[in-house]
């Protein structure tokens, strides 16, 4: 039912017939089982699903952190499967931003250094105007010289978000970014992500199991047993919860 036609233009990322298989024979696990989906530019997409549904695997394969067993993924017009390790690394560095659930920062670098890290690695000069916009939007101006250990969890995650957006990436992948934050810090971070999409046309793909977090997205993709089982546009926490209940009922 929930098949999605990839728009002919402006897909920031795309996966076609993606499958990821671990083990062989009896021990074979199909973490992804024929997923096809396009993530359009300027969209904030949430990926939801129960544990083991393959949502993290989907994100990892699309972000060039892992490889599909079969199928293809693109970032923009670049097919990741065709690239070697070195080039995939370059794609991650130059075109993708990451926000992880925990351990997002290097402890020995200051907040400012952490934010600039991907740019420094790439040897690129930051766009100072954009950087200032990001930093002020995340209210990090007075925290830039602090080390991660001197920051609260919410502040740390905002620094991680600033790093993800600092290089003006084509797409940002966020893996349970609010998983370890309190509700206040969560809404601050998600509010920023929403603004990044609305005001700066960023593209975000976020894996989460929190309906409230997912409600900040433009659409939700539901995964089950490695397949896309449903989609929801203009989600609210309630509509998401309802859909989740329906899905878990359907699968029983």
């Amino acid at each position: 039912m929930a098949t999605s036609e990839a728009p002919p233009v402006a897909a920031a990322a795309r996966i076609e017939d993606g499958a990821k298989v671990y083990g062989t024979g009896d021990a074979e696990v199909r973490a992804l089982d024929g997923v096809t989906r396009s993530f359009p530019v300027g969209h904030f997409t949430a990926i939801m699903g129960p544990s083991g549904s393959g949502k993290s695997t989907l994100m990892h394969c699309m972000a060039g952190l892992d490889r599909l067993t079969t199928g293809t993924t693109w970032i923009g017009e670049v097919e990741l499967g065709a690239l070697g390790e070195k080039d995939v690394t370059a794609v991650r560095r130059d075109r993708i931003g990451f926000i992880f659930q925990a351990f997002n920062l290097l402890p020995m670098l200051t907040a400012a250094e952490n934010i600039r890290l991907p740019l420094d690695i790439a040897g690129r000069r930051p766009d100072p105007e954009w950087l200032n916009q990001v930093i002020s939007a995340l209210e990090l101006g007075d925290r830039l010289d602090h080390r991660p250990s001197q920051l609260s969890g919410g502040q740390q995650q905002r620094v991680a978000a600033a790093r993800a957006f600092a290089s003006h990436p084509e797409i940002v992948f966020a893996d349970e970014p609010t998983g370890q934050l309190d509700s206040h810090s969560s809404s601050e971070l998600l509010g920023f992500m929403r603004r990044a999409v609305d005001e700066f046309s960023q593209t975000i793909v976020m894996v989460t199991h929190d309906p409230t977090a997912a409600s900040y997205a433009d659409g939700v993709v539901f995964l089950g047993d490695g397949r896309i089982v449903d989609e929801l546009a203009a989600p609210t926490p309630t509509s998401i919860l309802d859909r989740m209940k329906a899905l878990s009922g359907a699968s029983q």
Partner: peptide, 8 residues
């Protein structure tokens, strides 16, 4: 993390 954000 370093590898994820692009360190070869």
């Amino acid at each position: 993390l370093l590898r994820a954000v692009g360190l070869t």
